[in-house]
C-alpha cells in the first residue's frame, strides 16, 4: 500500500479551506506544477495518475464520452510531442484554470464503494 501519492493523504483540503494558507500556498503550488513540466505537453494532472489498477480503470469507465475522448486526445498529443523531443507550442500548454481534477472524484467514489463492500463483508451483527 502506498501512503503518499495523489490519491493518498493530502493537505490540499485543509489548505483550500483557509484563505491565508491559500495566499502563500497557491503561488508555490502553481510554480511546482509548472516546474513538473506536464503542462508544456498539454496534459492535466489527472492524466498522470497511475491507471494500471482496477479502481482507476473502473473510474475511467465513469467518465463522460466527451471527457474520455479529450483524455485520449491529450495523451496522444503528448506522446507525439515526446517523440519529437519538443514541448508543444506555447498556446497549446495547459492553462492554470484548465488543470481540473476530472478523474479524482470518480476514483475516490470507487474507493469509497470498495471500503463499504469490505465493511459489509466483515460486519458482525448484533440483533437487539
Amino acid at each position: 500500500m502506498v501512503f503518499f501519492g495523489p490519491l493518498q493523504y493530502s493537505l490540499a483540503p485543509k489548505i483550500l479551506a483557509s484563505k491565508s494558507m491559500m495566499k502563500w500556498a497557491q503561488p508555490l503550488a502553481l510554480w511546482f506544477s509548472k516546474q513538473s513540466g506536464y503542462k508544456k505537453y498539454g496534459l492535466k494532472y489527472d492524466d498522470l495518475l497511475v491507471e494500471e489498477s482496477d479502481n482507476v480503470q473502473r473510474a475511467l469507465g465513469r467518465l463522460t464520452p466527451a471527457e474520455s475522448y479529450e483524455r485520449a486526445f491529450r495523451l496522444k498529443r503528448a506522446s507525439q510531442a515526446s517523440v519529437l523531443h519538443a514541448p508543444l507550442p506555447e498556446e497549446q500548454w495547459t492553462k492554470d484554470g484548465e488543470d481540473v481534477r476530472y478523474l479524482t472524484p470518480h476514483i475516490q467514489e470507487v474507493q469509497k464503494e470498495e471500503k463499504e463492500r469490505a465493511m459489509w463483508d466483515t460486519i458482525s451483527v448484533k440483533r437487539k
Partner: peptide, 12 residues
C-alpha cells in the same frame, strides 16, 4: 444508503 448497502442490509 448505497445499492450494496440496501442489498446487504435487507439480507441481514
Amino acid at each position: 444508503r448505497s445499492a450494496l448497502g440496501t442489498v446487504r442490509e435487507s439480507e441481514l
